[in-house]
Nucleic acid binder design. Structure first.
Lengths: 124, 124
DNA sequence: TGAGTATATGAGCATCTGTTCATATATTAA
DNA sequence: TTAATATATGAACAGATGCTCATATACTCA
């Protein structure tokens, strides 16, 4: 995604504030932590996945429930849940053949709440 | 993105918890608010854009600074900033020919902080 | 006004994403 | 074990995304 072009000066204008650039570089997150955050936000940046997370905030649901709620195939839901599971946004518990999904921790709720506040405040 | 398939029962298993499904539907966010949140998270779900936001948290930067910091073209940065501007994640102020960008409000910082906490806690 | 600098924008293209469809696995009950 | 149910997974394909390149706009100074 980020491609370092070595040996080429990509910025040839003269307005650079050298200290701000080096400060930004110094304060930057390690690449892997940046990527982890990217994956988290990317996971929440999909209409269906966000609806799933929002719904699970109110209580656990099985794959079939979610599919019925979203009006999409169970396969599609399963793929989405796998992603959310891998990033530890959701957990599940098995009861017989049925898997019940729920949010993994309060951070997910916090993120949605903060995002909602942001949007409600910016929209004048 | 979400395609409602009318006249077709997409879920034909019998495990549906009818009450959970209708409850989820009742509690669901209005479509436009869900989409706004999606756009916000999607905007933050890109490695370069997130680096920009993280850097701006420490102080304003001009397009050229950001390009130098990220080692990408100014055009690419400008495209990214346009998106962030449209979603009101960043603002800018002009000083002569130079545009200084900064974060729009504290929510952006909060989101990054919460995401970071989530990732640090989940990573055992 | 014209030249130079800083940034913005549109089109085009390679890559990534999310769905569908087919198939596989897991659990339960007969 | 076999059949049935619930979920998972892989491949493939259409649509979305982020870059580059060319060009346009905005501001400053001579």
């Amino acid at each position: 995604m980020l491609q370092i072009k070595e040996g080429k000066d990509l910025c040839d204008c003269r307005c650079i504030h050298e200290n701000r650039v080096t400060a930004a570089a110094d304060d930057a997150l390690p690449e892997d932590e940046n990527l982890q955050m990217v994956h988290l936000f990317k996971a929440m940046g999909d209409a269906n996945r966000l609806k799933i997370l929002w719904a699970l905030e109110k209580g656990e649901m099985c794959v079939c429930d979610i599919a019925a709620f979203l009006q999409v195939s169970e396969s599609a839901v399963s793929h989405q849940l796998r992603l959310l599971r891998q990033l530890q946004l959701v957990k599940n518990r098995r009861q017989g053949p049925i898997l019940y999904y729920r949010l993994n921790d309060h951070h997910i709720t916090d993120l949605m709440q903060t995002a909602l506040e942001h949007n409600r405040e910016e929209k004048k």
